[in-house]
């Protein structure tokens, strides 16, 4: 799963800490997502999209090759 969190954050002039606080996770989670190391839950995905005021498709793109570890993977 590829994401545009870093780009959207820059557009909204938002720090990782601020985004983390708004979506109710730690900064580490945001860092891991931006590095494509962690695939968030659907709920968190929607929360992030909601914070940026865009659809979930504008934040996350499914790509087989760049898939980070998710709930059902190692």
């Amino acid at each position: 799963m590829k994401n545009r969190i870093r780009v959207l954050r820059a557009e909204h002039e938002m720090t990782q800490e601020q985004l983390a606080e708004l979506v109710g996770v730690t900064r580490n989670t945001i860092i891991s997502m931006e590095k494509n190391k962690y695939c968030p839950s659907l709920k968190l995905g929607y929360r992030i999209a909601h914070v940026f005021g865009v659809g979930i498709d504008d934040v996350f793109t499914y790509e087989e090759s760049v898939d980070g570890p998710s709930a059902d993977e190692e």
């Binding site: 606080e21 730690t26 580490n28 989670t29 891991s32 968030p40 968190l44």
Partner: peptide, 8 residues
């Protein structure tokens, strides 16, 4: 701060 982080 957040305690119940989903990644953790």
């Amino acid at each position: 701060v957040v305690i119940a982080d989903e990644r953790e």
